[in-house]
């Protein structure tokens, strides 16, 4: 068995002179849940469509189980797709939608019924077979789309923003359900989304993309805690991103003040960017902290307060804290070494 089920190498796609993908390299292992994450226009959907066979790459290769499949049409790939807005066939009922692929393979009626029934059960839609797809709710249509793809026992399932049309609560439920399903059926999922929370919740690995290039590949924890550049830090979670200068290993100068950190390996006096997550800043008494500031605004966010503080050098910091402070109050801020994350400066 190959180590990787899908390999993308130097994948490039141009649409009328415009480069949508500029040389993507990505290797995906069997049974992995990989998410392509990025803002719209970053190339994530194009990547997915090339894997599905709906677009041909301008240059580079798509390799499936060790074989190059650039020109293999979608109907000959052991890959299935759950489309954005589902693309259920409106003229067929739920059963016939799910059975579509099986019928094309000329399975006998008994086998088809058995497989469809199993799938309906898997996606919690038992007894919905005769229903028209238009009569289903968004979440139910979503499940039919997943069942329709999974029933063909693909080796890889591609999902293009499948939860985009659902409301928040349903989306959260479906996230867990999808993850569960993936573990039960044991196939590779490649998932496209622009929702960072979704990506972090479900994935084994996240691929952060921007403007046709991969910015970072890593586990959700890596991506959140160790973003490699400003784009990733900004896109995932919230944070205070500041300019800094690396004085030496474990020492960074921000706003003219030296801070101790846990990063090393940068050149001395290298200009870097510094990320401090808002939940990593501690509020202390006014004259006890490393920094002094005045509270500018406080917004209650449910679990915590989002507090904006202006420090002495007119910088605004965002802090998440479960304790209430008052607007106009003078406070001190404490930033520990492991709260400071140093990133290479790009551009």
């Amino acid at each position: 068995m190959e180590e990787y089920i899908i390999e993308l190498s130097r994948l490039t796609k141009k649409f009328m002179e415009k480069e949508a993908l500029c040389g993507i390299d990505l290797k995906i292992k069997p049974k992995e849940f990989v998410t392509l994450l990025g803002p719209s226009g970053c190339g994530k959907t194009t990547t997915l469509r090339i894997i599905g066979g709906f677009e041909e790459p301008t240059a580079g290769d798509v390799i499936f189980e060790g074989k190059q499949i650039n020109e293999v049409p979608p109907y000959q790939r052991q890959i299935n797709t759950v489309f954005q807005k589902y693309a259920l066939f409106p003229h067929l009922n739920v059963f016939d939608n799910i059975a579509f692929g099986l019928r094309l393979k000329k399975l006998d009626q008994g086998a088809i019924e058995e497989k469809v029934a199993y799938m309906l059960k898997l996606v919690n839609l038992e007894g919905f077979g005769k229903r028209k797809v238009q009569s289903l709710s968004g979440g139910q249509q979503q499940r039919v789309a997943i069942a329709r793809a999974l029933v063909n026992e693909p080796k890889v399932l591609l999902l293009d923003e499948p939860l985009g049309a659902l409301d928040l609560k349903l989306r959260k439920e479906m996230q867990l359900e999808l993850k569960n399903m993936q573990q039960r059926v044991g196939i590779t999922f490649i998932y496209v989304t622009h929702d960072q929370e979704e990506a972090l919740t479900m994935s084994d690995r996240v691929v952060v993309m921007s403007e046709g290039e991969i910015q970072q590949i890593g586990t959700p924890e890596d991506i959140y805690n160790e973003p490699v550049n400003r784009f990733v830090a900004d896109f995932i979670g919230e944070g205070n991103i500041l300019d800094g200068i690396m004085e030496e290993d474990f020492k960074v100068k921000i706003e003219g003040r030296s801070f101790t950190c846990i990063d090393k390996g940068f050149g001395s006096n290298e200009v870097v960017e510094v990320l401090v997550r808002p939940e990593d800043i501690q509020i202390v008494e006014a004259n006890k902290g490393m920094l002094k500031g005045v509270v500018e605004s406080v917004v209650f966010k449910g679990v915590h307060y989002e507090i904006l503080v202006r420090d002495e050098s007119e910088m605004t910091w965002m802090i998440h804290d479960i304790h209430m402070v008052k607007v106009g109050q003078a406070i001190g801020m404490e930033i520990g070494p492991d709260a400071i994350h140093i990133m290479k400066k790009v551009g």
Binding site: G52, G53, F54, P73, P74, Y75, I79, N80, T81, F83, Q84, K85, A87, L88, F89, F100, G101, L104, K105, R148, A149, N152
Partner: peptide, 14 residues
């Protein structure tokens, strides 16, 4: 919906 045809191809239809 342009995805309908793609969905059919995806499910193995020529």
């Amino acid at each position: 919906n342009p995805h309908l045809e793609e969905a059919a191809l995806d499910l193995g239809a020529t």
